[in-house]
């Protein structure tokens, strides 16, 4: 198999799969996004059985598989549990020009973390354990990017 390339030109077709998508947000996350968009608030929901508080909210508790109808408003603040400074450009994916920071933020009042961007600070100054608060976009369309980023607070 290896030597065919010496006899025949290698031909490669470029291609792309072009299919449009629309994702139904559903009962739980619709409520969450509307609260974020209209009221600028970050909510979580709590398992009626084990009490675990999830943000982003869950349709079912991942431990108990119970429905989650118990909503709690979070202060929005949290602590950076881990982060990365993205240096290498990834065309079409980067939400902003590198270097920028992704982090898992352990949210106050919840048992889980949120993944988001860290801004308003030089990337090299970001540390694990740093306290952060959300910075919301003024014009919000009901998506995760309604939170512009989380920024360090004193």
């Amino acid at each position: 198999m290896a030597d065919w390339k010496s006899e025949v030109e290698e031909v490669v077709f470029p291609g792309k799969i072009c299919v449009p998508y629309s994702w139904t947000v559903g009962s739980t996350l619709s409520r969450w996004y509307v609260q974020l968009r209209d009221d600028g608030e970050i909510w979580a929901n709590r398992c009626p059985s084990c009490g675990t508080v999830y943000v982003p909210p869950k349709i079912k508790c991942i431990k108990c598989y119970k429905d989650m109808n118990d909503w709690v408003k979070l202060p929005g603040t949290g602590t950076i549990e881990t982060f990365t400074v993205v240096n290498k450009e990834r065309p079409g994916l980067d939400p902003k020009k590198p270097p920028f920071v992704y982090a898992v933020i352990k949210m106050d009042g919840a048992d889980t973390g949120m993944v988001h961007l860290i801004g308003g600070v030089e990337p090299e100054k970001v540390k694990v354990g740093m306290r952060v608060a959300p910075v919301l976009e003024k014009e919000r369309d009901g998506h995760i990017t309604d939170i512009k980023h989380f920024k360090p607070i004193a």
């Binding site: 994916l93 939400p95 993944v115 988001h116 998506h143 995760i144 990017t145």
Partner: peptide, 8 residues
């Protein structure tokens, strides 16, 4: 696609 994907 409902949460983290848009962050890249």
């Amino acid at each position: 696609p409902l949460v983290e994907r848009k962050l890249g």
